[in-house]
């Protein structure tokens, strides 16, 4: 079913959604009444870019803050995460023999940074949908959009990716329209996903302007030929 929509323009299909659902959604009606179809598209694109720029700035501030916090650290006995549990998770790998005392300490800090980055990127998606509660599908969106989180694609089921689509389109929208709207809002050009549904693979780079996120080129340079694990 997704494949059938592969060839259609995500932008065009998405643009028709607010009108189709006009009777059912106050929000959609407001948006639809506020602008013609082309204008609505432009507005959405600008919003997307602004959101991405905001995220890039937040991440930059985040990493600077991390460095400063670690500079101030003098106490290595109190951790945000229990070392014994980290060690146990490490030991789950049968190949792991001995673990020095410093390894879980480093991991405690690394995991904290990981949780913070994942949450920050997920919250970006929450705000895009004008919600105040971070949900599982926000995490799915963050995983999809971030290359270094590819190893998590199996942790976040595909259903949550669908929720990502449905969550942004007013209730009552037909599945076909929902599927068509998927690539437009959530997979900006330049952030090619790996191991995601085929309909997604066919869209990046085509209809959208380059992703302004400054961090992306560094990752792409290191992995220019990204293997598709799902195919």
């Amino acid at each position: 079913m997704d494949q059938q929509d592969h060839g259609q323009s995500g932008a065009m299909n998405y643009g028709t959604n607010p009108y189709q659902t006009n009777p059912m959604s106050t929000t959609a009606a407001t948006v639809a009444g506020g602008a013609a179809q082309p204008g609505q598209l432009a507005f959405h694109q600008i919003h997307q870019q602004q959101q991405q720029q905001q995220l890039a700035q937040q991440l930059q501030a985040f990493w600077e803050n991390q460095f400063k916090e670690i500079e101030k650290t003098t106490d290595f006995k109190n951790h945000s995460l229990p070392l014994a549990r980290i060690k146990k998770i490490m030991k789950a790998d049968e190949d792991v023999r001995m673990i020095s005392a410093e390894a879980p300490v480093v991991f405690a800090r690394a995991c904290e940074m990981f949780i913070l980055e994942l949450t920050l990127r997920s919250w970006n998606h929450t705000e895009e949908n004008k919600r105040r509660t971070l949900q599982k599908n926000d995490i799915a969106a963050a995983v999809t959009r971030t290359d270094i989180f590819d190893f998590l694609v199996d942790i976040v089921p595909r259903e949550d990716l669908r929720d990502e689509v449905l969550g942004s389109i007013p209730r009552g929208t037909v599945p076909e329209a929902a599927a068509a709207g998927y690539p437009y809002g959530y997979l900006p050009a330049g952030t090619a996903p790996i191991g995601n549904p085929g309909m997604v693979m066919g869209n990046p780079g085509g209809a959208y302007p380059p992703n302004p996120y400054m961090g992306q080129p560094m990752w792409q340079q290191q992995a220019p030929d990204q293997p598709d694990q799902e195919n």
Partner: peptide
């Protein structure tokens, strides 16, 4: 901002995967 329990549980799983991934 609020966090659903589903989201916390998902992050729990993601962190364990991160530890296993790096440890491996």
């Amino acid at each position: 901002g609020k966090i659903s329990k589903d989201a916390k549980e998902t992050v729990q799983e993601c962190v364990s995967e991160f530890i296993s991934f790096v440890t491996g």
